[in-house]
Design a protein around this nucleic acid. Structure first.
Lengths: 346, 346
DNA sequence: TTGAAAGCGGTACCAT
DNA sequence: ATGGTACCGCTTTCAA
């Protein structure tokens, strides 16, 4: 097995070196890489041999500069924790990679000021597309985004929600509708004193929308005043759920159901109920949001809202690619919906 | 607040345009950005104004090409699912960003052939560092890596394990030692018929090592033949845990403890035990691995092995940065250890 | 303290 | 089917 190791020299081989070795011009090497069909087979074979022998790996920065195409897509998500966006990122990455794009990842940790800084850094890479999970942007960030998409034609996709005023495109579902649907569902099941436990910090836009949906459903059904407890900004953990239920029960001891803004919160609530000897769903029903792995029959058997996380990622990639190919005009908002999953906790 | 929107023209402003507007040469603009101290304050102010007015964002590809520094670090992890690597990636990203580097992310989904393809793609970006979670590399991938680190001086960090023969550096812990320690711990607690449920596919190197540790401990303590059940390649879900326990109990009905290769598996096992009316830990003890959020007292109260996931990320970033700064020589292997956490399931 | 010139490693475009 | 020649936008180096 000769070659393939590359030569021992310094640095990577350049296209010029490959060309010299194959006895052709750099342009021919470039063609072998991009449009092999346009090169005579015998020439192509020689060039491919030279590439293999030198272990040549083209420099993407140079290519990007010359072609004005970075083949990079940036994704800025609020967090990777809790596996909320993990499947979305996985789906996004898989589709993009097949199309020859790389994924530049940034996490804002639910702070919109760092979203802006990240955005600037990432924009310097001239990404061919931008994916954002954050619901709200600072004015400066918004300007940057508008500029990127209007002025430069960079496709932007906001995910996991349906913004009223999308920057460009959006793929997600209505958090408001989902919050309302689950609450109404609990009401249909006969629960009358339904509480809500969620993350109600100003930076978690989606949590706020779910909560709004909850209130809406309560009002529609005449179910009385909201009984909501919001954990702090970075909340959303199992422990927050346990604390949340405790707080709710202290204030409204007669609750017969709790709708939690996320499955981890629901888990905490269920554990806390068990600790208090409350039968679930007999004495207290619990519903979650997200349909995490452990919410299934084999685990919590949790009644929850299923979100098509990976599909959001794949659809986002598809949209990005379509628009870049010029096959898609104007604003696009794709509602992938959600699904109420009834299991055994409500 | 004039400007900041940038001009309406096509494309991004270039450094030359900023220079023209400020009445200086491009070099001065470049200096204002990289070494502000070397530019006279009055000049600097003019340049900064021009930058703001044009909404100038430097082109990183051009910078990378000219300076031969990409300011990009690539991380190739086997998966984002299950939040195993999520905190590591978050820690890595946070430290890198502060140092002005971006994160290029790729997921191999536990297939080493796609690791190789990804590696080639990513190497084209000439990353300043490489982070890998996969335990084993194909021969070609290994050659690529050796070349990158030896020939080109690209720091490579393998994480979440301590390879016997590291490509360059490593940050993690011994999966073997952790598997052995938990098994020995269960033995110390008095359990005698300890089973193991894990992912034993050939691509999950770390799972295999934990299993090996389990067998070692059994042998050391004279606890008889191993009672292990391995779910398929992509296993590791809560459902796999339930199935795993069922399979184990069918074959060895007298087990008094199960050590699961991950917390989700342990969750499934606990749920399955409940279904069968087995008291945990009274009739069956269960231990997990990972110390996920829901393993805590507020959730499962699971006896498990805690891994310093985020610290692995931060330490990895630190090493990368140190080595790039030339303050670190030779192979480095950092063992961040693990911690046995006893809670209420064993 | 500032600027001019020469690339970095590719690709677009136009010849041949 | 192949090659020549600019040039992408920035930094390095050296000079003023």
């Amino acid at each position: 097995m000769a070659g393939d190791n590359g030569r021992d020299g310094e640095g990577w081989a350049t296209m010029g070196e490959v060309a010299a070795r194959a006895g052709v011009s750099p342009m021919t090497v470039s063609r072998v890489l991009k449009e092999p069909g346009r090169v005579r087979p015998t020439t192509r074979t020689r060039v491919e041999a030279a590439i293999a022998e030198l272990g040549y790996v083209p420099d993407a920065a140079a290519g990007a500069l010359a072609s004005r195409q970075s083949r990079l897509v940036a994704a800025l998500v609020s967090t990777l924790a809790g596996s909320i966006f993990a499947s979305t990122i996985a789906g996004l990455g898989a589709v993009l990679r097949e199309a020859g794009h790389e994924l530049l990842l940034g996490t804002t940790e639910y702070s919109s000021s760092s979203e802006e800084a990240l955005l600037r850094a990432v924009l310097g890479r001239r990404p061919g597309g931008l994916v954002l999970s954050a619901g709200q942007h600072t004015p400066a960030a918004r300007r940057l985004l508008e500029r990127a998409t209007r002025g430069l034609g960079v496709p932007v996709v906001e995910i996991w929600q349906l913004p009223e005023r999308p920057v460009d495109m959006a793929v997600g579902f209505s958090n408001f509708a989902a919050g309302r649907a689950m609450t109404a569902f609990l009401a249909d099941l006969g629960y009358r004193r339904i509480a809500f436990v969620g993350v109600l910090g100003p930076d978690d836009f989606r949590g706020l929308r779910r909560h709004a949906g909850y209130r809406e459903a309560l009002a529609e059904r005449g179910l009385g005043e909201p009984r909501a407890f919001g954990s702090g900004g970075s909340g959303g953990s199992v422990e927050d759920g346990a604390r949340g239920l405790a707080a709710v029960l202290e204030r409204w001891p007669d609750c017969d159901a709790v709708f939690c803004g996320s499955d981890p919160l629901a888990f905490g609530a269920i554990a806390e109920a068990a600790r208090r000897g409350l039968a679930v769903p007999g004495e207290l029903a619990v519903a979650g949001f997200g349909d995490f792995d452990y919410a299934g029959e084999a685990g919590l058997a949790l009644t929850t809202v299923r979100i098509p996380g990976e599909r959001i990622g794949r659809e986002t990639a598809r949209l990005l690619l379509e628009r870049k190919a010029g096959r898609l005009e104007g604003p696009v908002v794709v509602d992938l919906g959600f699904e109420l999953v009834r299991r055994r906790t409500a």
